[in-house]
Nucleic acid binder design. Structure first.
Length: 111
DNA sequence: TCTGTGACCGCTG
DNA sequence: ACAGCGGCCACAG
């Protein structure tokens, strides 16, 4: 029998985190693509999962960007120094941004 | 149970 | 190129 445990994280979130962890280093993905991985029609729900990301250092949420190839958000902010931090993290992964847009389109991890 | 909100997406003007 | 609007799903209070 399945005892109901009080899970702070829902199955949906686990699915999202699993997909993010699947992203190879030096590559990026978009919320929409990620949503596709979890069979979700809304990428916004995916964004919420990352925002609430309880596995901050465990999940490379900085590898997730907008479908518009823009940097997106980070640390719960859509703009600010934290965003610059995200850009720097990506730079260390070998991913460069140009004027807030992804420079190397070929670095996107397609499903 | 209902409502508001969000690290979004796409179209239209 | 930019701004506005609606739609979409999941979560918190």
């Amino acid at each position: 029998m399945m005892q109901k445990e009080k899970k702070t994280v829902t199955d949906f979130q686990e699915k999202v985190y699993a997909a993010v962890k699947r992203i190879p280093q030096g590559k990026v993905t978009t919320y929409k693509l990620l949503a596709k991985e979890v069979r979700c029609k809304s990428s916004q729900a995916v964004g919420q999962a990352l925002k609430r990301n309880p596995f901050a250092p465990m999940v490379p949420c900085h590898r997730v960007i907008l479908s518009d190839l823009s940097i997106g958000g980070f640390a719960g902010q859509t703009h600010g120094e934290e965003i610059t931090r995200k850009q720097m993290l990506l730079k260390q992964e070998g991913i460069l941004f140009d004027n807030g847009k992804l420079c190397d389109i070929g670095q996107i991890h397609y499903s």
